[in-house]
């Protein structure tokens, strides 16, 4: 890939920004999408169902990535408003799936491991609030899974309500659902619960790509037998 970098262009005026010259390359590699092919036709934004709720619609996200404007990406509403419907990827003449790019930023944020240091605090309060709720939901979903092995909505929703501080909204709906028997009080159970918990424990190994393929399989099997 060439060393093309819009990041070298001096952006006059506007808010002070954190520029990562390598952002386009990082995102291309992490998402598998050919970010630099974009010629801003905006067919993606035109078809995006969530574009009107985004501060940066999909075409702008791609543009900002090319500029290397990392902090705007990390603090924006748009990546959290993306529903992953893949309409952008279906329509783009250059085959760019913007949802994948959004996922890259979300996973950097949720893992707490940004590929580069970011300067000061990110984003406006409003965006932060919305993002916080979305990020919270992701975390709680995973926590519920880790605990129960399968989805247990009461735990998820309860946890979400408490953690987001948004206790009162949706309560009528929740209560109705409870009484209609749609929200079982107790989770189901089975041997899978232990297995899922074990998977979570092993997660760092996979994400850090420490686990070597086939060679280790026999070792793992031996260890399992010895247990």
């Amino acid at each position: 890939m060439s060393e093309h970098s819009l990041a070298a262009v001096n952006l006059r005026g506007g808010p002070s920004t954190e520029i990562w010259p390598d952002l386009a390359r990082m995102v291309t590699r992490a998402s598998g999408q050919p970010v630099l092919r974009c010629y801003q036709c905006h067919k993606c934004s035109s078809g995006c169902p969530a574009a009107e709720f985004m501060d940066f619609p999909p075409s702008q996200i791609v543009r900002l990535v090319t500029y290397g404007l990392a902090d705007q990406m990390l603090s924006c509403k748009a990546i959290w408003a993306c529903t992953g419907c893949m309409t952008c990827g279906l329509r783009c003449p250059n085959g760019i799936e913007v949802g994948a790019i959004n996922d890259v930023f979300k996973s950097w944020i949720l893992s707490g491991k940004l590929p580069q240091q970011v300067g000061d605090k990110l984003g406006t309060d409003q965006a932060k609030a919305g993002n916080r709720r979305a990020a919270l939901f992701h975390k709680l979903f995973l926590m519920t899974l880790k605990q129960f092995g399968r989805m247990h909505e009461l735990a998820l929703m309860g946890g979400y309500k408490v953690a987001s501080g948004d206790l009162l909204s949706d309560i009528p709906v929740g209560v109705k659902m409870l009484f209609k028997g749609k929200l079982p009080l107790l989770p189901t159970s089975g041997p899978y619960r232990r297995e899922v918990a074990a998977m979570f424990q092993r997660a760092p190994l996979v994400t850090r790509r420490r686990l070597k393929p086939a060679r280790r399989l026999s070792e793992l099997n031996q260890r399992r037998q010895g247990r």
Partner: peptide
Amino acid sequence: RGRVARVFPEGDGLMVWGEDTLSGRKV
């Protein structure tokens, strides 16, 4: 300026979803 995402029938006519990239507004 913008590529049209979709054209679909709406009543007797055809709905065209596009964007005017120069103003950033969906059309």
